[in-house]
Simulated assay, not measured.
Amino acid sequence: MNAFTYPEVGATRLGPLPDRYHHLRHRTRVGRGRADLDTVGAAITGWRMHRAAGARVEAAADRAEAGGTLTVSLGAGPFRFTAPCRVVWTAYEPDRVGFAYGTAPGHPECGEESFVAELADDGTVWFTVTAFSRPAAWYARLAGPLVPVLQRWYARRLGSALRRIAA
């Protein structure tokens, strides 16, 4: 798999999110306490979260590692869309676990998306999706304003999947 299809690699970690892209920020409570952080962190970085939300994931490794490659696909039959990605960064920290992937050639979008669980001081486990993207394929451009709606729906679906996994 080739390099990334956008120049702002790492912006979901370092910020700010770049101009000329659609921005997505979604945060939801997924659990409470260290055990829940460990559970959802493993689900995020081991692809279980995506699979529990209905995506297919084919990855070069069992868990997210910087530089690793994967494809994520959604849909069914002729309406299945495949998205080649490369892991940009990972966080395996005491109170923060997650990763970001960026788009690779052949992805219908251009940009980056991060998935992070954090343990707050009050014991709440929060899941945050941060992304910037713009259409790359003709069909993504054709879908226009529907794409951000679908991205928000998928971010909520990921949070729901993590709540179920933590429970």
Rank of each mutant, 00 (worst) to 15 (best):
P105F: 14
T28Q: 13
Y101Q: 01
A53D: 03
E113K: 09
F81K: 06
C85T: 04
R25H: 12
V87A: 02
G67P: 11
G54T: 02
R29Q: 09
W138G: 10
E58K: 05
H26G: 01
C110H: 11
T90C: 12
R156Q: 12
R152H: 12
I44F: 07
A43F: 07
H50L: 15
R134T: 13
L150Q: 02
S114D: 09
H26D: 12
F115V: 06
Y154C: 03
T45E: 09
F99I: 08
D95H: 13
V40R: 00
R27N: 11
E113I: 09
G68N: 11
H50V: 00
V72W: 13
E112K: 03
C110T: 15
T103M: 05
R86L: 04
D95C: 09
T128K: 04
R156I: 06
G102S: 04
L70M: 15
H22Y: 12
P108V: 14
G111S: 05
H22S: 03
H23T: 02
R157D: 06
D122W: 08
H50C: 00
P78R: 11
E109Q: 09
A104W: 04
F79T: 11
S73E: 10
A120V: 07
R48V: 15
R63D: 08
V116S: 06
H23F: 06
A155F: 11
A76M: 13
D95V: 14
R34A: 13
G98Q: 12
A140H: 05
Q151I: 03
A55Q: 05
G98C: 12
G75R: 04
D62C: 00
A91D: 14
H26L: 15
R156V: 12
A61V: 07
R63G: 08
P78Q: 09
L146T: 03
A35W: 01
